[in-house]
């Protein structure tokens, strides 16, 4: 008994097409008889019998693609069982590697979504990222591209853009407490004596601006009055304006941020986010609580202390400030 197999005849051939059987099941076979024709690599070849006997157990039909190496018939000593039982699963396929379909991935968002591409050397990009510098700021100035490491010096001189993530120096905090009575008396007096309504926020902005200027000798002070429910207001030099007059708003960059908590349950904010010096004013019974966060990039410690002390003095004794 000898197996009849679909032969591997070409290089890298996985299957052979059985063009047609030249012998029928049950036929007597002699070695060298042409058993069937097989098509590989666009040529048809005749496959000869390798043994004498009878063609039996034929399991592949004309026109069928058969994995190479698979038994498609048997040449046996007798002509019994000319047709095969249902073909077993092809052995050759068992070793076929199953390649997992690639996992579909969402298309990557276009990296360049903000208009023009910025040309810069890989090293300049890496250093800019490490230092928190935005090459876009340089591009906005019209500086010619491509940018190199030497261009970063220019960028370092430029003020950081709003909303830009900056690697922070350590946050420092100064806290103070002062009596509210002085301020309350002052506001009542303004109302009674001059029919002038003074808001807490306006008073805070004015007193803080004055204290800041005195402590740091900053020529222009822009106070960003935070409004958790709306748009922050940017006030330019509010201490230069009388409390009765409206303060001019500005679109200049803020000098510091002011949170007025006096009408809320909050007493103090210590968020550690000192992109800008941040002042929060809360009330606690008969006291105002002053919290000031800053870093060494904004001012030195003495200036910070002078600012908070000056603000507390102004709040405790507003007339002193007005004088």
């Amino acid at each position: 008994m000898a197996d009849v197999i679909m032969p591997a005849l070409g290089m890298a051939q996985d299957t052979g097409k059985l063009v047609q059987w030249m012998k029928a099941p049950g036929d007597a076979i002699s070695t060298g008889d042409v058993l069937f024709e097989v098509e590989t690599d666009k040529s048809v070849m005749e496959v000869e019998a390798q043994a004498d006997g009878f063609l039996t157990q034929v399991s592949a039909s004309d026109g069928e693609d058969v994995p190479v190496g698979q038994v498609i018939a048997v040449i046996s000593a007798t002509a019994e069982n000319p047709v095969a039982a249902p073909a077993p699963p092809p052995v050759a396929q068992a070793v076929t590697e199953v390649v997992a379909a690639p996992t579909p991935t969402a298309p990557a968002p276009d990296a360049v979504t903000t208009g023009g591409r910025i040309l810069a050397s890989p090293k300049a990009r890496r250093l800019a990222a490490q230092e928190g510098l935005d090459l876009g700021q340089l591009a906005a100035t019209g500086a010619p591209m491509p940018y190199h490491v030497s261009d970063l010096a220019t960028l370092r001189e430029m003020p950081a853009a709003a909303g830009q993530t900056v690697v922070m120096a350590a946050t420092k905090q100064i806290m103070a407490r002062c009596q509210r009575s002085g301020s309350r008396d002052f506001m009542e007096w303004m109302q009674a004596d001059g029919a002038i309504t003074v808001t807490t926020s306006a008073m805070f902005a004015s007193f803080a601006s004055g204290a800041f200027r005195a402590a740091t000798e900053t020529p222009t002070v822009v106070v960003q009055v935070a409004d958790p429910d709306g748009t922050d207001i940017f006030l330019r030099n509010p201490d230069f304006t009388r409390l009765s007059a409206p303060v001019s708003e500005t679109d200049e960059d803020a000098t510091f941020v002011l949170h007025d908590l006096s009408d809320s349950f909050l007493t103090s904010l210590r968020l550690g986010d000192t992109a800008l010096p941040t002042l929060s004013l809360g009330s606690d019974g008969d006291s105002y609580l002053i919290t000031f966060e800053f870093s060494s990039e904004h001012m030195d410690d003495a200036q910070g202390i002078a600012f908070v002390s000056g603000l507390a003095r102004r709040l405790a004794d507003p007339l002193h400030h007005l004088v």
């Binding site: 050397s121 890989p122 090293k123 300049a124 990009r125 890496r126 190199h148 490491v149």
Partner: peptide, 13 residues
């Protein structure tokens, strides 16, 4: 090519 692969982020040109 090897410099591009191995030292890309150190190249300033």
């Amino acid at each position: 090519s090897r410099l591009m692969e191995e030292s890309f982020y150190h190249l300033d040109g």
